[in-house]
Design a binder for these strands. Structure first.
Lengths: 340, 340
DNA sequence: TTTATTTACGCAATCGTTCCCGGAAAATTC
DNA sequence: GAATTTTCCGGGAACGATTGCGTAAATAAA
């Protein structure tokens, strides 16, 4: 069953006016007398009239909704981004439709297809780690759908991007390990397809070189599904600890991988940081409660969401095609368990 | 700028047919010849035609979207519920609009107002801990909006509810502590307004009585904002450890409170479980990685989301008003760090 | 051959709004 | 008092789809 909301027609009929007059009165048009306006406004308020957003959307050819695709919301980093997105989107009267790719390319494609079919006005996306085909995204972009990338972006598509200084963040984390005396530092990284992976691994290698250490390919493990499949991390860590000599530290390039490594090290009964130290990107709020207090690279997730949404709404509301795209690069923060 | 999608009119014009014929051809109506159908279908496929969902919504007076209100998505319990919701909603062609109350009543009211104005077809809600006025919710329900409660429900509103056996879950957890020899068990609970709080505190007290222990009001602390404000938990824990004799264990009634207590105990440098043991409701996946391995009460969150959504969609798609409402009560699981 | 029935399509209303026109009444100017 | 301008409001098309109804042509039945 459904409930019937009051429409502009109901008001018009009740007040013996035309729908155009009612519409104009509600929008405070100058061509309606003060007296009529008052009558309409009062009556509308009494019935708690709400203009039907669907009718409006049809008329304006705007759904007033934006799509968001992230790997998974059950991840502090992404949920913080989403909070940032919502804070500005809702402020401006936009509905946010959240979807998850679960780091799965097919799911991402289906989701994207679905969002497009729901006629969203714009898209915020952090591509999945499994994404290696950009056809669909490109074609949507070409057909005019405003897109802004957050965190994980894509080089081939020319639009606004909101990212962090991944190189620097990874560099800082690795230097932190080096300063503490670790010399055999392994890296558990996300999918090679991701631009952030390249940048973070780059920062990691630069730090090693700074200490005259040669990066060892065997010490870098890539996880195609970004740690979504635990066995990926299991394989990575198992292989690392089989190496001779073993690594004395691990740098993980994402939230999921950082906690994944910790899980694995614990399962192998390897003391952290005594036997193997660990650091990595993470925005989890529970880090300080973990059995092994580790240093993490934090990203300004909330702010990233905000900035990205502002840019997207600019794109959506711009009268003419935007040509001048910018890439906003924010800074990460190295957080130690003590210096909180 | 905006991109213009192809409409049924474009197809009609190009093929020299009427819009009705095109519409019927696309819907495979029997009153269109096979030849025409083929032409239309092929042309539509070539242009990647997607019927405008907004126009459909207007026609059918259905938005094909459901609203979801939870405390916060950055909480494993709720994000798992949401995953459950999405899994069935998307399957049935419904869009999920997620909103967060952040355990704040005013925010919840605004959000509800907003969702209603976006003409959602139904609502899934887990009320905020600060909710003590049900006026708005009641009036929406009376005006015909289908509502299903998840986890935190409300007695006064007669509709489907999907909950867990809170009493039993809390009872089990407390018994678990008692069996381990703890006798001065405190309780850090959520807002007293929440029905789940009453049930969980009830289970806690029943367990105590089972061991001939008299529940001490001083040992039960309520947090109005459900631990959303850390200082609430701080006050609760500080007061508890000032008691003489001190409690030797704490039972926390929610995810946020369980981790909040752990945070506080750590800050006070109180060893867990040595000085004070801790157990509580939690669906966090990081529990096993915490410095103090604790036993938690887990809720079947994903399933709760699924069941609730199925019920809601039934309500939405029912031809006549539903009178027979049910309350689905699922079981919790007591999970120890070892028996995983 | 004539009539009845299918078949296959078009017309137009509808959903709830907005907004371009057009026009009557009132107010202003000459 | 006539001409002009304002003020105020209604009619109706449009947004993109569906659908009841009407109807010409094709086919079947008489």
């Amino acid at each position: 069953m459904k409930y019937k909301a009051t429409t502009i027609k109901d008001i018009a009929k009740a007040l013996n006016l035309s729908t155009s007059t009612v519409s104009r009165a509600l929008r405070d048009s100058h061509e309606i007398s003060a007296a009529t306006k008052q009558v309409v406004l009062e009556y509308a308020a009494r019935l708690n009239f709400q203009p039907n957003p669907i009718a409006l959307s049809l008329k304006e050819r705007k759904s007033h909704s934006i799509g968001v695709i992230v790997a998974e919301i059950a991840n502090s980093f992404f949920s913080q981004i989403i909070n940032g997105i919502e804070s500005v989107a809702n402020e401006q009267g936009y509905t946010v439709i959240i979807s998850q790719s679960h780091e799965n390319f097919e799911k991402e494609v289906r989701t994207l297809q679905y969002l497009a079919s729901r006629s969203i006005d714009g898209l915020l996306i952090s591509v999945s780690s499994a994404t290696n085909d950009l056809q669909q995204l490109k074609s949507l972009h070409q057909s005019g759908l405003p897109i802004v990338f957050v965190d994980r972006s894509v080089e081939d598509i020319h639009t606004h991007k909101v990212v962090v200084d991944n190189y620097q963040g990874a560099y800082n984390a690795t230097i932190h390990l080096l300063e503490q005396g670790y010399r055999r530092i392994a890296c558990v990284a996300n999918s090679e397809h991701l631009n952030i992976t390249k940048e973070r691994v780059g920062g990691y290698m630069a730090a090693l070189q700074q200490y005259q250490l040669k990066p060892d390919p065997q010490m870098i493990k890539y996880c195609f599904h970004g740690g979504m499949l635990l066995h990926e991390v299991e394989t990575a860590v198992s292989e690392l600890i089989k190496l001779k000599p073993k690594p004395d530290a691990i740098f993980a390039t994402s939230d999921k991988l950082t906690t994944g490594c910790m899980r694995m090290l614990k399962r192998h009964k390897i003391a952290v940081p005594k036997t193997i130290a660990l650091t990595g990107f993470s925005n989890s709020e529970l880090i300080e409660l973990l059995h092994a207090p580790i240093t993490v690279v934090q990203q300004p997730a909330f702010e990233m969401g905000q900035v990205a949404t502002e840019l997207l709404l600019q794109l959506i509301e711009s009268k003419r095609p935007v040509k001048d795209f910018k890439t906003i690069k924010l800074q990460t923060r190295l957080v130690s368990p003590d210096n909180k």
